[in-house]
Every structure is written in C-alpha cells, then in structure tokens.
C-alpha cells in the first residue's frame, strides 16, 4: 500500500473515501471499517463486512491523523466505517481555525 501524498483510497466495506495528505513515516496499512482500504480505481474485494468495532463512521472534510506514524488523510467522502492505521483508529485533527485571509 503506497500511501503517497495525494493518493486516493476507498473503503472496502462502506462509502468512505480518503486522500492521503501526509505519508506515514514507516509503512502502515490504511484501513476503514476494519478492512484495508483499496485504491480508488480498484474493484472492492467481495465478501468483506464492516467490523462492528470499527463502525464509528468517518466525516467528510475532516482531517484524520495517526499520531504514531504521522499519517494524515482527508476524508473526501463520509461513510459508516472508522478510519484506522494498523488497527489504531485515526483521530480527527482539529483545524486551527484561521481568520479568512482571501
């Protein structure tokens, strides 16, 4: 799984889509709903189901962070699954709200 900046991924088990904003410092699997995400253009593997332990949902427009590897992803489509890296749920990175400048 090449998590290069700008690469786009979709959940194997829900509607979630994400784009990598910052790559991980060491290789890690980006997951959603308990399953590895698949490249946006690839077919979803058949027969997988949403893991209830990873079903807190993802929110469109939020930035998600894995503190351990620095992996950061922007949710470009929300869904039912939880975004995670190697089983660790990602946390929402609260944007430091900036006054409008342009």
């Amino acid at each position: 799984m090449q998590l290069t900046p700008g690469s786009r991924w979709k959940s194997a088990v829900c509607d979630t889509e994400a784009v990598v904003v910052r790559p991980p410092s060491s290789p890690v699997a980006l997951e959603c709903g308990g399953q590895p995400m698949v490249a946006i253009k690839d077919e979803r593997p058949a027969g997988l189901a949403l893991d209830p332990d990873f079903s807190a949902g993802s929110l469109l427009g939020k930035r998600y962070l894995d503190a351990e590897t620095g992996l950061e992803a922007l949710c470009s489509k929300g869904g039912a699954g939880t975004l995670a890296a190697a089983g660790r749920p990602l946390t929402i990175k609260e944007a430091k709200k900036l006054p409008s400048s342009d």
């Binding site: 700008g6 427009g61 939020k62 930035r63 900036l98």
Partner: peptide, 15 residues
Amino acid sequence: HRHLAAYVISTVEFM
C-alpha cells in the same frame, strides 16, 4: 496542485 491544496486544507475548514 499540491501547493494550493495544502494551503486550502490547512487554512480553511471544509464547508
């Protein structure tokens, strides 16, 4: 694109 997108998502809250 990566410069402009980085600027936008780091300074503006989506919607």
